[in-house]
Amino acid sequence: MITVEHLTKTFNVSRQQRRDMSPGYSGSTVDAVRDISFTCNPGRVFTLLGPNGAGKTTTLRLIATMLRPTSGSITVGGVDVARHPVDARKRMGFLTGNTGLYDRLTPDEMVKYYADLHGMEARTYSRRRDELFTLLGIHDFAKRRIGKLSTGMKQKVSIARTIIHDPEVVVFDEPTAALDVITSRSIIQLIKDCRTQNKTVIFSTHRMGEVSLLSDDLCIIHRGSLIFNGGYADFQSRMQTASVEDEFVRLVEAA
């Protein structure tokens, strides 16, 4: 379970960034995320939807402990991420559209590295590795350098790396953004499997097809603030337009 309460993240703005921002902006800080609260429950897929620069990645990085909140709190499986980041990370898997793999390692070495970082015992690791490698079909290329693998193969290794320690919470940051339709399917399937296994899943996207395919709960974030937070079924029942995409655009423009 992930609980986010009154979360705010403020960044200092450099002179260059100030120039790149909207004309007339003269502040020295910017709120990437402003006073947001939501809860992600086990066995449900929580979707974070928003346009580019809305604050999706910042929110996920805060949950994954890569960034520290300016104010507010986040708990993952009951662990406060600001106070006990290492404990929180033990409970989490993190996957992005970028596979985040080392080209000069083999899939075997890559997955073992993360298993070791998670402190997995040899026997548990061995069983889990065989299970995942069979499920994802990695055995055939387990000893080849990752740099020589196709994008699809890499994504499978990335999935194995993310869930080797069987995390209770899985964070997906635009996991299909850079992938083709075929490769994206393995990610979609992984998210569905995580739900079946009663894991807490939070994922960010701006692909409307994925929203309707996967979401149990939905948050729409725009300019760092939530403009919708509720069940996906609730969102659909309140729609004033014909499609999810149109409704999303309507909400963003109205905000």
């Binding site: 890569m66 290492v86 990370r89 989490m92 992005t96 985040g100 080209d103 993360y114 998670h118």
Partner: peptide
């Protein structure tokens, strides 16, 4: 640049 730092920072190590 390769994006591996981001995932490494989510591992349970300081």
């Amino acid at each position: 640049e390769r994006g591996t730092m981001e995932t490494l920072l989510t591992a349970p190590v300081t």
